[in-house]
Each structure stands twice: as C-alpha cells, then as structure tokens.
Measured scan of single mutants.
Amino acid sequence: TFELKGKVGKVVKIAEDHYLVEVEGDKWIAYSDEKLSLGDRVMVVDVDGLKLKAKRIP
C-alpha cells in the first residue's frame, strides 16, 4: 500500500466519518483534513495501515 502515496484518485462515496476513494481501480477508505465532495480528485498523501489520507487537488 505504500506505493499508493502520491497517486491520484476520486471520491466515490461519503460516509459519516470517512470517504471511499477509488485509486487505480481499487476502492480504499480514506480520511482528509479538509471537507471533500463526491467526485473530487484527490492525491494520496499518506497511508495508515489500510486507510489513506487524501488531499483535494484541482
């Protein structure tokens, strides 16, 4: 999973306390310091076990 750092994905679902992000065809649980919206493009900035930390990108 460490190779996911720096990869770009898309928010495909918003849950109460996390997001579901699709990166290279796989879906991952993600969290972010900022509020994300459905369809936002994100970059993986860190990997915490099986969770990704994501940041919105333009």
Rank of each mutant, 00 (worst) to 15 (best):
Glu22His: 09
Lys35Phe: 09
Lys5Asn: 15
Trp28Phe: 05
Gly39Leu: 10
Arg41Ala: 14
Leu38Trp: 10
Gly6Asp: 13
Tyr31Cys: 14
His18Tyr: 09
Val11Asp: 00
Val23Gly: 02
Leu50Thr: 10
Gly6Leu: 01
Lys55Cys: 10
Thr1Asn: 15
Val21Trp: 00
Met43Tyr: 04
Ala15Lys: 13
Arg56Thr: 06
Ala15Met: 13
Ser32Tyr: 02
Glu34Lys: 04
Val42Trp: 01
Trp28Gly: 02
Gly9Gln: 00
Asp17Ile: 11
Ala30Tyr: 01
Glu22Val: 13
Leu52Ile: 15
Lys7Thr: 03
Met43Ala: 05
Thr1Ser: 15
Val45Arg: 01
Gly25Trp: 06
Asp33Tyr: 07
Leu36Ala: 02
Thr1Trp: 15
Glu16Arg: 09
Trp28Asp: 01
Lys51Pro: 01
Ile29Tyr: 14
Glu34Arg: 04
Val21Arg: 00
Asp40Ala: 06
Phe2Ala: 15
Phe2Lys: 15
Lys35Pro: 11
Leu36Val: 07
Pro58His: 10
Asp40Ile: 05
Ser32Arg: 04
Lys13Cys: 10
Lys13Glu: 10
Glu22Ala: 06
Leu20Thr: 10
Leu50Glu: 11
Ile14Arg: 08
Asp40Pro: 00
Trp28Ala: 02
Lys5Phe: 15
Trp28Lys: 01
Val21Asn: 00
Tyr19Cys: 07
Pro58Ala: 09
Met43Ile: 14
Lys13Asn: 11
Ile14Lys: 08
His18Trp: 11
Val23Glu: 02
Tyr19Met: 12
Leu52Tyr: 01
Pro58Asp: 13
Ala30Arg: 00
Val21Ile: 14
Ala30Val: 04
Val8Phe: 07
Leu38Cys: 12
Asp46Asn: 03
Leu52Asp: 01
Lys5Trp: 15
Lys35Leu: 12
Ile57Gln: 08
Val11Ser: 00
Asp26Gln: 12
Lys5Gly: 13
Lys7His: 04
Arg56Tyr: 11
Gly9Thr: 02
Glu3Gly: 02
Ser37Glu: 12
Asp46Val: 02
Glu34Trp: 04
Asp26Trp: 14
Asp26Phe: 14
Gly49His: 08
Val23Thr: 03
Gly39Lys: 09
Glu22Arg: 06
Leu36Tyr: 03
Val12Gln: 05
Asp17Asn: 08
Leu36Phe: 05
Leu36Met: 11
Leu50Phe: 14
Glu3Lys: 02
Val11Gly: 00
Ile14Ala: 13
Val42Ser: 01
Val23Arg: 01
Leu38His: 08
Asp48Cys: 14
Val42Met: 10
Leu4His: 03
Gly9Phe: 06
Lys7Cys: 12
Glu16Ile: 09
Pro58Trp: 07
Glu34Gln: 07
Ala30Glu: 01
Asp17Met: 09
His18Thr: 09
Arg56Glu: 04
Asp40Met: 06
Glu34Asp: 14
Lys5Ile: 15
Val8Trp: 05
Lys53Trp: 05
Asp17Cys: 09
Phe2Asp: 15
Tyr19Asn: 03
Lys35His: 09
Lys53Phe: 07
Gly25Arg: 06
Asp40Ser: 05
Lys13Asp: 09
Ser32His: 03
Asp46Thr: 03
Leu4Met: 14
Gly6Ser: 02
Val42Thr: 03
Lys53Pro: 01
Ile57Lys: 04
Ile29Val: 11
Glu22Trp: 11
Val45Pro: 01
Arg56Met: 09
Lys10Glu: 12
Gly25Asp: 05
Asp40Lys: 02
His18Ala: 08
Asp40Val: 05
Val21Pro: 00
Asp40Cys: 08
Val8Pro: 04
Ile29Ser: 13
Ser32Phe: 03
Thr1Val: 14
Asp48His: 06
Asp26Thr: 14
Leu4Gly: 15
Arg56Ile: 07
His18Cys: 11
Asp46Tyr: 03
Val23Tyr: 01
Arg41Thr: 13
Leu20Gly: 04
Val12His: 06
Leu50Asn: 14
Leu4Ile: 14
Ala30Trp: 02
Gly9Ile: 14
Leu38Pro: 08
Glu3Asn: 03
Glu34Met: 05
Gly49Gln: 08
Lys10Tyr: 09
Ser32Lys: 07
Glu22Asp: 09
Tyr19Val: 05
Ser32Gln: 03
Lys7Ala: 06
Lys53Arg: 05
Asp33Phe: 06
Glu34Pro: 03
Ala15Thr: 14
Val45Ser: 04
Lys7Asp: 06
Arg56Pro: 09
Leu4Pro: 15
Val23Pro: 00
Val8Asp: 13
Leu50Pro: 13
Pro58Lys: 05
Gly25Ser: 06
Lys55Asn: 06
Lys10Pro: 06
Gly25Tyr: 06
Lys51Ala: 10
Gly25Thr: 05
Lys35Gln: 10
Tyr19Trp: 11
Pro58Met: 09
Leu4Ala: 07
Val45Glu: 11
Val44Met: 05
Ala30Asp: 00
Val23Ile: 14
Gly25Glu: 06
Glu3Ala: 02
Glu16Met: 12
Glu3Ser: 02
Trp28Met: 02
Asp17Leu: 09
Val44Trp: 03
Lys5Glu: 15
Lys10Met: 10
Val12Arg: 06
Gly6Gln: 01
Ser37Asp: 11
